[in-house]
Design a protein around this nucleic acid. Structure first.
Length: 927
RNA sequence: GCCUGGGUGGCGGAAUUGGUAGACGCGCUGGAUUCAAAAUCCAGUUUCUUCGGGAGUGCGGGUUCGAUUCCCGCCCCAGGUACCA
């Protein structure tokens, strides 16, 4: 019987599902291991071969860990709230719930075919009320908490209120936007509304008017990480700045801990660096500059207080609140014109226009705090209102942007660096010695920074300060298909609903569009459409995509719990994720937000760890191979690849299913209806050798490029085990690589060869029950060692090669020994689980016991050889090999080698200068 | 510009601490089997060569008995980021 993968795979797929082979148990004497994949958004186009790459790797690792005696948690679910389903709903009127359910069913079907060992009883969907009940509950916890810097953790808001009632906010050291101080008496005299307005400045989830990224095309605000190069990440629509009342998350409070926590996790440097840059910590000082003949002061932030004597002007952002106030009458019209012009430019234009230096003098002067000199005050759009204080002290000798600005406007450049020429460019390194700077003279910059801060604080001009680039994250979206907030309004004061009222379910609406007054879609819901309705109205916004994904890894531990988001004993058993596999594109989104929520839940004592994902591997992208046809411009004529240079053509993507070995199926192409190409039957084709040859290019796999390869076709043709092994065989997991199916035959043939080790020509199982041969033991144990080492360092690709080598060797040895094959079956089962289950039973084992068998133990004894083939090199070049007993001493080896006739040939009669012998490795002779 | 990876045959890639460069697979060439094809099996496949051997892991140097691996300088590719004071 030949290897019938369809029969074998169907059988075991069914067996695993029915006997719940991979159900994880919440308590065990075994050590636990938690392997997690980034859960997918179930899109309408289904999975392509790039998606399961990471899932296959994590599945192999999960199966390996089970064999190694671990209690493995390996769940899967769906990040099922999101824009595409809603866009589809707007177009068709179909409820996004229905679209989402259909897509999930398709995903599940595709995932099942690949033979993953997920514990499906733990499946979560972020869009199900049973799940988002707890997303709402966590939101409530954030709403009812503030960040206390003295304890350096989040604390219940009740504690803050208790303090405010007794001592006001004077001694409160919290992360807040509230600047003014008030006493206990003042606090107690405030109305409820006033109190709430102040508390909003402390809450970790808060409502505030803030500048947000508004995307008119999507009709919603976006978080900073959802805006790429000034356009929306999804769809590439323009984004503008708008002042809106929005829910935000006070992630800023965690900036420092998000930074230091990175040192405790095993992630790639690239992702850690991206997070570090995103958090953007810089240390320096905030300094106040008195404005001449005014009571106002300008606060600046600088990382180089040591260069304060080099200040020759100041620059405010055009939006800075003091601009209008300080501008003299003489410059009023110019300044107003500049502010207006800067305001018209979008954030994107301003960023794109870096080389264009622009600015305007205000006519006002500040007083240098140390030497009392007059300092011109300018405005310029290279200073951003949103960073620091929106104002800078310009030190042209030490900052290139300031230097460019000074040079452009002919402002004097004061050199405060000893023996450094700043006539051509600023000197930005921190290794200079300070001069011309009174008390800082002759100090190296690093020491001068410390002394400058000390003096600034002593004289009361400012203080040392740490600044972060990280801004609070906007948490509301003006969309339908997301979690409703557990919030209602009374007299426009936001209130959270009681825990026993959760969840607030998504109400039905007549349309998934904003209302005519521009309110979000939920404003369309009738009062009766809400399952709970309180106050004057419910919150109309919904939560962003990252809400549900920020804590889903916790829910898998206890997915059906109706009274807690996760039971304490369960989270204490499973702890954090040991291995997380997913794409690196979530570096500053999901991966930062889930760290933030984890730290918060830790602070509130709900979970026992601070970092969600201990080790992470980012799988590379699988690239598609696109095919192209070349249309002659202005004509319905297509020219073959080799002849396209003779015409003026436009390359167009063509569906790769119509192309085989770069040859286009012209008939199928002509009959195409919904392709990117307009190809009516009257199209003309200019052929070469009677064929139409397509061009090709390697690029991202996507529907729009017509280069998508689905796993379904390949599973159908070669089977899941072949697909799993082939995806791993392509190359290192982390690297991006082109998808090319031509090699898949090789892997499939390997599995057939493996199958044949167990069968005779007629397909009867023939197993030798006797003692294994020495050679077979050697092949097996060599493989055990390699496979284990490779898996421990997540090198899944080399594992496949090693199985091939082993099967080739056993095949040459004509080995069908039970002991050998049984061990090999266990070893290979993480990679090719279906075929291995089948062979495991054929060897006489009980069905279903393979997944929890014992991983083979490597025994060095079997690799020991009496002889070793020494490679003999001359001057580092390998010349010949010599078989020698392994127990020889280096001296004996040297003598043996030099006695060889071949050695004499390479010595050419000379004496060797030196002979290096590394026993068991190499002999090198220096001539 | 800055940060992080990476550059090895026709292709995907291997070489784990400095020790036989090109494992394994694809493709290609030749052969066996077959009426034929598929499948299978065998041999070959970095390159140049006067068949002795020479060169060779992006380029140029260096350390070493020995470098794909370590150090210095450069080039190219991919991803990220960009007036952050």
């Amino acid at each position: 019987m030949e290897y019938n993968f369809r029969e074998v795979e169907n059988k075991w797929r069914k067996f695993w599902a029915e006997s719940k082979t991979f159900a994880a148990i919440d308590e065990s004497d075994k050590p636990k291991y938690y392997v997690l994949d980034m859960f997918p958004y179930p899109s309408g186009s289904g999975l392509h071969v790039g998606h399961p790459l990471g899932y296959i790797a994590s599945d192999i690792f999960s199966r390996y860990k089970r064999l190694k005696g671990y209690n493995v948690l390996h769940p899967m679910g769906y990040d099922s709230f999101g824009l595409p389903a809603e866009q589809y709903a707007i177009q068709t009127g179909q409820h996004p719930k229905i679209t989402t359910e259909q897509n999930i069913a398709r995903y599940r079907d595709q995932l099942d075919k690949i033979g993953f060992s997920f514990d499906w009883d733990r499946e979560v969907r972020t869009s199900s009320p049973e799940y988002y009940k707890w997303t709402q509950w966590i939101f409530k916890q954030l709403f009812n908490a503030y960040y206390d810097y003295d304890q350096d953790k989040a604390v219940a808001l009740d504690e803050l209120i208790a303090k405010l009632e007794v001592e006001g906010n004077v001694n409160i050291n919290a992360c807040t936007d509230h600047e003014e101080t008030f006493s206990a008496d003042q606090w107690n005299a405030f109305s409820d509304k006033e109190k709430e307005q102040i508390l909003q400045n402390y809450r970790l989830a808060y409502l505030a008017d803030s500048w947000v990224n508004w995307c008119p095309a999507l009709g919603t605000v976006l978080a900073n990480d959802e805006v790429v190069n000034g356009v929306s990440e999804r769809g590439g629509h323009p984004v503008e700045q708008k002042l809106m009342r929005q829910w935000s998350m006070r992630i800023k409070a965690y900036a420092e801990r998000l930074l230091t926590g990175l040192e405790t996790v095993d992630w790639t440097d690239s992702i850690k660096d991206q997070q570090r840059n995103w958090i953007g910590k810089s240390q320096g000082a905030s300094v106040f500059f008195q404005i001449e003949s005014s009571n106002d002061k300008i606060e600046v932030f600088t990382t180089r207080p040591d260069t304060i004597y080099g200040v020759s002007f100041m620059v405010l952002a055009p939006e800075h609140p003091l601009v209008a106030e300080i501008t003299t009458d003489e410059y009023k019209s110019e300044v107003e014109a500049y502010v207006k012009q800067a305001g018209l430019k979008s954030e994107r234009d301003r960023q794109a226009d870096v080389k264009n230096i622009s600015g305007q003098f205000t006519g006002a002067y500040a007083v240098h705090p140390f030497n009392g000199e007059k300092v011109q005050i300018w405005i310029g759009d290279y200073v951003l209102a949103s960073y620091g204080t929106g104002a800078v002290m310009a030190v042209p000798c030490g900052d290139q942007r300031d230097w460019d600005f000074a040079t452009h406007f002919n402002i004097p450049i004061i050199n405060i660096f000893k023996d450094i020429d700043v006539s051509e460019a600023a000197y930005t390194e921190k290794d200079a010695v300070i001069a011309n700077s009174d008390f800082l003279n002759d100090l190296p910059a690093k020491k001068a920074i410390k002394l400058a801060i000390y003096e600034i604080e002593k004289r009361g001009f400012g203080k040392g300060k740490t600044q972060y680039r990280l801004r609070d994250a906007v948490f509301s979206r003006q969309r339908y298909w997301g979690e409703p907030f557990p919030v209602y309004y009374t007299d426009e004061i936001p209130q959270v609903v009681g825990d026993d009222q959760l969840p607030i379910t998504l109400p039905e609406v007549d349309k998934y569009l904003p209302t005519e007054d521009g309110e979000p879609p939920l404003a369309r819901a009738e009062k009766s459409a809400w399952n709970q309705f309180f106050g004057d109205r419910m919150e109309y916004n919904t939560m962003p995509g990252w809400a549900g994904s920020s804590w889903y890894f916790l829910r898998y531990m206890d997915p059906k719990n109706d009274s807690e988001f996760v039971a304490k004993d369960k989270v204490e058993y499973w702890q954090n994720v040991d291995l997380y596999i997913g794409g690196s594109e979530h570096a500053t989104g999901h991966l930062l937000y889930s760290r933030f929520w984890t730290k918060f839940l830790y602070d509130m004592d709900y979970i026992p760890f601070e970092e969600p994902f201990q080790k992470m591997i980012n799988q590379g992208m699988i690239l598609g191979r696109s095919s192209f046809v070349y249309r002659v411009k202005g004509e319905n004529k297509y020219v073959s690849f080799g002849l396209k240079e003779q015409y003026d053509t436009t390359p167009l993507h063509v569906d790769i299913n119509l192309v085989e070995n770069d040859i286009l199926d012209i008939e199928a192409f002509k009959n195409l209806k919904n392709s990117a190409v307009d190809s009516s039957s009257i199209a003309e084709f200019i052929l070469e050798d009677g064929k139409y040859i397509c061009g090709h290019e390697v690029e991202k796999m996507s529907k729009s490029k017509w280069n998508v390869q689905t796993p379904d076709d390949l599973v159908e043709k070669f089977g899941a085990d072949t697909l799993r092994m082939y995806e791993m065989f392509l190359g290192p997991l982390e690297q991006s690589k082109p998808w090319d199916t031509s090699g898949i035959n090789g892997v499939h043939n390997f599995l057939r060869k493996f199958w044949r080790l167990f069968h005779d020509r007629e397909g009867n199982v023939i197993i030798d029950q006797g003692a294994p041969s020495k050679d077979a033991l050697k092949s097996l144990h060599k493989t055990i060692k390699k496979i284990e080492d490779d898996l421990e360092r997540f090198a899944f690709n080399t594992g496949v090669s090693n199985f091939m080598i082993c099967v080739n060797e056993l095949n040459d040895q004509k080995c069908n020994n039970k002991e050998i094959l049984e061990q090999l079956v266990i070893l290979m089962s993480p990679y090719a689980p279906h075929i291995c289950e089948e062979l495991w039973v054929k060897l006489g084992n009980k069905a279903g016991t393979l997944s929890y068998a014992e991983f083979p133990k490597y025994n060095e004894e079997h690799l020991k050889e009496a002889n070793y083939h020494y490679p003999v090199s001359f001057n580092g070049k390998m010349r010949f090999k010599l078989e020698l007993p392994t127990e020889l001493t280096p001296k004996e080896i040297e003598a043996e080698v030099l006695a060889q006739e071949q050695a004499q040939k390479w010595l050419e009669g000379k004496d060797p200068k030196k002979v290096i012998v590394v026993p068991g490795k190499i002999v090198n002779i220096v001539v």
